[in-house]
């Protein structure tokens, strides 16, 4: 009577064998029907990518180019399909962005190209693909990752954008600074119940939620940095654009509030170890606009100081802020026409577009720096919850 003795890990080759007719079941269970919020929460980060790659390794081992091609095509199409269906769900998009990147890294790490093998163990090198060069497929998967990244940004923007004006401009957290409301301004009433209720804290909580989801999914740290930089760009651009359109936002006290909010955003970056990701720099136009609200705006020296300070703002933006500037109390005055003329004259020779509003839809180009994994493929076990019992560890 045969006894089922489990094989030792060292006996596995880090491949998963599957029948051609099970390919559909594989992508269905692993991609189309996997719920990032349910089963996937307890998976090791990137597990779907490793599983797909281990299946691919087996097809490569069989030297079956057709099997390799159809697996890659089904994988890519299934990822596209799930993103079409659930593309507005940040968790789903983040999950497949990180898995697509992991799959791409695996294709490089095990390609046999010495450039990608520097950090591999001896055993990992033995697991390189043996028959096929998938460089062209790597390009396709990299294109797919770019598409998913853009979708992630859109998804994040849809959640974040409605919070920005309220949290960054309208809501006041510094008590006593604007005790005196700018003259002639009335508080805007909100037409939608939720409007105006977001605070800087809700923005920070949302940023933390995005960040923690991406970390849970094992997103590459370099990719997280790019997402955060893009988030900060959107926050800065939307805030500045609204400031440029609203007189009630152009006061000394709003300048104070914005600077405080920016410092809180910086604090968030520091807390997450993201100070060097370029996110803070994207806020520079907003920071300068806030400073512009607070500096003296009277003498020629003031004009000179403003021109040398506001290098991240266009002339149109500087002039607009000065025109909109509204004194908060009787000790202040409106900015004189003569002063604005002086500024315009000084900035005449600047080479720039006459751009007033920032492009809130701009997306920085994304890159996916190679990030090999030390995980040994032969140790990977497939949880029964994935319903992939038809795969055989080889």
């Amino acid at each position: 009577h045969p006894v089922n003795i489990p094989r030792r890990e060292k006996d596995f080759q880090g491949m998963l064998e599957y029948k051609k007719e099970d390919e559909l079941k594989l992508v269905k269970n692993l991609i189309l029907e996997l719920k990032p919020r349910g089963v996937a929460v307890n998976l090791i980060p990137g597990l779907p990518a490793y599983i797909l790659f281990m299946c691919l390794r087996h097809a490569d081992y069989l030297n079956d180019d057709q099997k390799v091609r159809t697996l890659l095509t089904s994988t890519i199409n299934s990822i596209k399909k799930i993103l079409k269906k659930r593309g507005d769900d940040f968790e789903t998009v983040s999950f497949w962005l990180s898995n697509t990147c992991r799959f791409l890294h695996c294709l490089k790490q095990y390609s046999g190209d010495p450039a990608f093998m520097k950090h591999n163990s001896q055993r990992q090198n033995e697991h390189s693909l043996s028959n096929f060069d998938l460089a062209e497929y790597r390009q396709v998967i990299s294109d797919l990752a770019i598409q998913i990244y853009q979708q992630l940004i859109k998804c994040m923007e849809n959640i974040l954008q409605p919070m920005i004006v309220s949290g960054m401009l309208e809501h006041e957290t510094i008590q006593g600074v604007s005790g005196v409301k700018p003259t002639g301004l009335r508080k805007r009433t909100s037409s939608i119940a939720d409007e105006g209720t977001d605070t800087l804290d809700s923005i920070l909580r949302q940023l933390s939620a995005f960040h923690s989801t991406m970390c849970q999914h094992g997103t590459d740290p370099e990719l997280i940095k790019q997402v955060v930089k893009q988030q900060f760009y959107i926050i800065g651009a939307v805030t500045l654009n609204n400031l440029l359109l609203r007189k009630d936002m152009c006061s000394w006290s709003k300048g104070m509030q914005i600077r405080y909010n920016v410092s809180q955003l910086e604090e968030w970056l520091r807390d997450k170890g993201l100070m060097t990701c370029g996110a803070k720099e994207t806020l520079e136009p907003l920071i300068q606009a806030a400073q512009l609200l607070q500096v003296k705006k009277k003498t020629d020296e003031d004009a000179e100081a403003i021109c040398s300070m506001c290098l991240a703002l266009t002339t149109a933006q500087i002039v607009k802020v000065l025109n909109l500037y509204t004194p908060v109390n009787e000790f202040e005055e409106r900015v004189s026409v003569a002063f604005i003329r002086t500024i315009q004259t000084r900035l005449r020779d600047r080479c720039e577009t006459p751009q007033l509003l920032m492009d809130t839809k701009m997306i920085y180009p994304v890159t996916f720096p190679f990030n090999p994994s030390s995980l040994a493929l032969e140790t990977i076990q497939i949880p029964t919850s994935l319903n992939l019992g038809f795969l055989t560890r080889v």
Binding site: L24, I76, K80, S130, F132, A135
Partner: peptide, 30 residues
């Protein structure tokens, strides 16, 4: 075990072409 012969380059369609290929997963049962 590194292979003794060079790997065969698999030509890949573009992402858009791939979508038009109407691969099996499109035929999944409801």
């Amino acid at each position: 075990r590194p292979p003794s012969r060079p790997r065969v380059l698999l030509k890949a369609p573009t992402l858009a072409e791939m979508e038009e290929m109407n691969i099996s997963e499109e035929e999944e049962s409801p």
